[in-house]
């Protein structure tokens, strides 16, 4: 696939739509043990950054942030939602998710394609969690001593989910074989 401006524009638009769609339908929220839902809404920004570069990632992050702002304002569903009406909490951190994921990917790509995708998913996701939780604390919606507990309880599983989805989507899209190129059903043949 040749790189083109048109593709960058379209991928940015379409993956922004995915992020917004995941938010609007609540499909992007996975109920979690900690009580606060996990979210995978930032994953499109990571995928977009890995496929089409940091600017595309930032644009998707911007749309994702604006969606969460609008949603917090129009249809709040959680006690922290009013905080997200502040664009410094809902938009600014999300702008950096894609570029961070891109840098992580760029540092490791090449021979180690699959690990690079995993790491970029983790980095992008953790940047999202830490910046959002940090901003929440900064504006007094959380206390700072909750910072690490929240990052651990939600940020780590979110990072895992982001890595998983990023690897699955990008590897399939680019045709990179995972698992040593073998179907897992192969293991069933010897059982």
């Amino acid at each position: 696939m040749k790189k083109s401006v048109v593709r960058k524009i379209v991928v940015a638009g379409v993956l922004s739509a995915v992020a917004a769609f995941l938010g609007l339908t609540r499909l992007g929220y996975i109920p979690w043990f900690s009580g606060a839902s996990l979210t995978v809404m930032h994953v499109p920004a990571i995928v977009g950054a890995v496929l089409e570069g940091p600017i595309v990632g930032a644009v998707i992050g911007l749309v994702f942030g604006l969606t969460s702002l609008l949603q917090a304002a129009i249809a709040p569903t959680g006690p922290l939602d009013p905080a997200f009406v502040n664009p410094l909490i809902s938009v600014l951190p999300r702008l950096l998710v894609g570029p961070a994921a891109f840098l992580a990917y760029a540092a490791f790509r090449g021979k180690l394609e699959i690990p690079a995708l995993g790491i970029s998913g983790i980095v992008g996701s953790l940047v999202n969690t830490m910046l959002v939780v940090g901003a929440l604390a900064l504006f007094g919606f959380l206390t700072w001593d909750l910072f690490w507990p929240v990052v651990t309880a939600n940020g780590l599983p979110e990072a895992g989910a982001a890595a998983l989805v990023n690897v699955a989507v990008v590897a399939a899209w680019k045709g990179v074989a995972g698992r040593g190129g073998k179907a897992s059903i192969a293991a069933e043949e010897d059982r």
Partner: peptide, 27 residues
């Protein structure tokens, strides 16, 4: 949605609880 064809075909019977040889045969 699976990466490999064999795994995608196996999705349904796996959900039915099939494992091992019978699963492979079905697929």
């Amino acid at each position: 949605f699976e990466t490999c064809v064999g795994d995608d075909v196996a999705f349904g019977p796996r959900n039915q609880g099939l494992r091992g040889k019978p699963l492979v045969e079905r697929v």
